[in-house]
Nucleic acid binder design. Structure first.
Lengths: 222, 222, 222, 222
DNA sequence: GATGAATGAGCCTTCATTCAT
DNA sequence: GATGAATGAAGGCTCATTCAT
């Protein structure tokens, strides 16, 4: 059965190729993230990223079609991860205020465990949804998705009378902005402080800003 | 007295030159601001800016010594204007909460009357003080100065027990972040909404976030 | 006689124009010479020259058609002066060795009284007649004319058996090179030394290099 | 031992890269030298040099960091070669007059075998040490070092009473100037003449100019 | 498939020259 | 006629991307 053998050999090859490719993707992804975090996207040269990944420039281009694509990929991947992680925490809790608290926790946890992406994210400076702004359209798009998820939460919370009224999209961005400020400060201070601490502080602040009953005694009890 | 005549001619020339130069400065300044707002600093070519100003490239360089200087100039000028304007409103009011309200009003008014700079400012994305970040050192420096001014206000307010306790620097950045979110939304919606409206909404939000007595009945009475 | 009056007025105008033009020529000429001496032709900007002359840039261009022309003009004028001056000293003396001595004296005197042109001349570095060399074709051409005059002298001297045999053109250039070295040193030392001293030293050297009877006792007696 | 194989492959690559780099350096060096010789440094465009070398502009910049560096490199390399070559000939002979003769031979031989550099060198026109002159600081520095070496020779020769007294630095420059004149003439005449001839002529001239006993019968006997 | 040397389009900036006032 | 502001052509250099080995 030479045919079968051939097929199997080719499929073995196929999967070997895919495996190797996945490894490269990861190496490059992380190298790029680190480099972008350190020097900014603009000042990071493709060659530096390849060197950081320990690969040849050509190999980098075999996996990612260009610098722009690399940036997009990072933002999309990380944001998908963030949204997924936050959703996992949030989905179980129906109560809006509680969900908000969980969301903050998820948000902080995600970035605390991805400090390179955090720095890259902060460095891009989020243009707060300003359509057409493109410090990085990729960042914009990926991040926008995450914000959309929060909008729903705010809609629900307002409908339930738990949150102060307002435009959900703006509220969502406001939340994100507050989180960025705190995370930026955390990075600036050397990431020494316990993230759980950060979470508490941010939760209190968020309650003040968004909840009609900021004390939320029932929430605390949980 | 031909001498006097000569002198007067030369001084007339001098002032004519200065006047024309000032006009060019303004033309270029605004053209650059518009272009930077539209396409970002990186993607704006000096030639485009010159064209936008209706001047030759060389003329642009006769007034501004280079692209970097142009960016710095814009940030410094606008930020000085902003700080000056806000200070004027704030200085008269000693009461911290009241000063906060005035500050917000000044901030919004300033950006509402400089929509191009607002877009440029939002686009650069402020890295929230993240040391080493440099989407633009110029922007960072100019804006940082503005933020520093707010820190004092928060210090006073906390000492007076009017504001919730916290790190003044973080509070100041938080305030700015909130303002940026609102302004970004305003721009995104086409700048239709009355800025006064924006101010009210932001004041309410700021009271919720920063004041221990958010209702501030005494303030409302003013 | 309105016609005559007109004519006379026009001719008065004509001569006034010429006079003014001559003054400008001189002002610009000297300013350029000074500037070229100080910073080199390449690094001298037309605007600097105009400023040095105390005239407007346009006026400079009304008199000299461009930078290149200005350089040519300076070299041609000064070289003509030099040749004229040297000729005046040399023509009277038929005896070749004596004429050589006079030539050196004339050469040094000329440059000693035109220190700016001397520095400019030295700075251009003479390409030693290398045809096609163009640190400045103007310099080349003007200077070449001066050298041609010396060639004749060497031809005569060789024919008379007074000078060592050799190619006249090379001998002439050799003489010039020696003079330049001495003058460069003179400038370098601050032009303190009495030019007459310089002349003596150079004459002795020239006699050694060119004369079959370097002692030239009869010459000394003159 | 795949490791060894890998190492050997990488070291082979390393040396291949170095070899190719050396080839490019040489190609570019010579192309630049030729271009500078032909059109002068100022009028030679980097693109022309790249084309002359048969390489892309970027490749040129991969090897030399810029135009200025290229010029410096050429002068330093060639002058080092010249000084080395001349030293080799001179060092063996202690007797000053003899050393002078050898020096001339070395000088001419060097330039005769590097005609492009000779033209470039002549074209720059050496400003004879005129401080502040900078047709090319690189040239100045490199060439100056060569001249300094000759000064020592003259000092020794004067102390020994072999040479006429004078300022050593001036004597050294004088020697160089004479050599340049002869070489310039040689180039101008199409470099047909046998360099050995040139050497003889220059040696005779140098003896006349510098030696107290120009006939140097003992020298001739060597 | 991996490599990294080679490529060249594109941008900022300077300065000789022009021409409207 | 004098002025000097305005012009824009030209050149050095960078770096994302390609492709021969």
């Amino acid at each position: 059965m030479p045919r079968t053998r051939t097929e199997s050999r080719s499929s073995r090859r196929q999967s070997a190729r895919e495996a190797r490719n996945a490894v490269y993707r990861q190496l490059i992804f992380e190298a790029a993230e680190r480099t972008f975090a350190e020097k900014g996207v603009e000042d990071s040269k493709m060659e530096e990223i390849a060197a950081e990944a320990g690969l040849a420039l050509g190999t980098l281009y075999n996996v990612f079609s260009g610098k722009a694509k690399l940036v997009v990929e990072i933002h999309e991947t990380r944001m998908r991860e963030a949204v997924t992680g936050i959703d996992a925490l949030t989905r179980s809790t129906r109560e809006p205020a509680q969900a908000l608290m969980s969301g903050i926790e998820g948000y902080v946890r995600f970035f605390a465990s991805h400090p390179d992406y955090l720095r890259m994210h902060l460095r891009q400076g989020y243009a707060w949804g300003l359509a057409g702004s493109q410090p990085s359209p990729a960042h914009e798009a990926a991040f926008g998705a995450g914000i959309a998820a929060q909008e729903t939460l705010f809609e629900r919370g307002m409908a339930a009378g738990v949150f102060h009224p307002g435009r959900p999209r703006v509220m969502a961005r406001l939340l994100v902005a507050m989180q960025q400020v705190q995370l930026a400060d955390w990075v600036e201070e050397g990431m020494q402080r316990d993230p759980a601490d950060l979470v508490s502080e941010m939760q209190i602040q968020a309650r003040r800003t968004f909840c009609r009953n900021p004390d939320c005694r029932d929430l605390e009890k949980d």
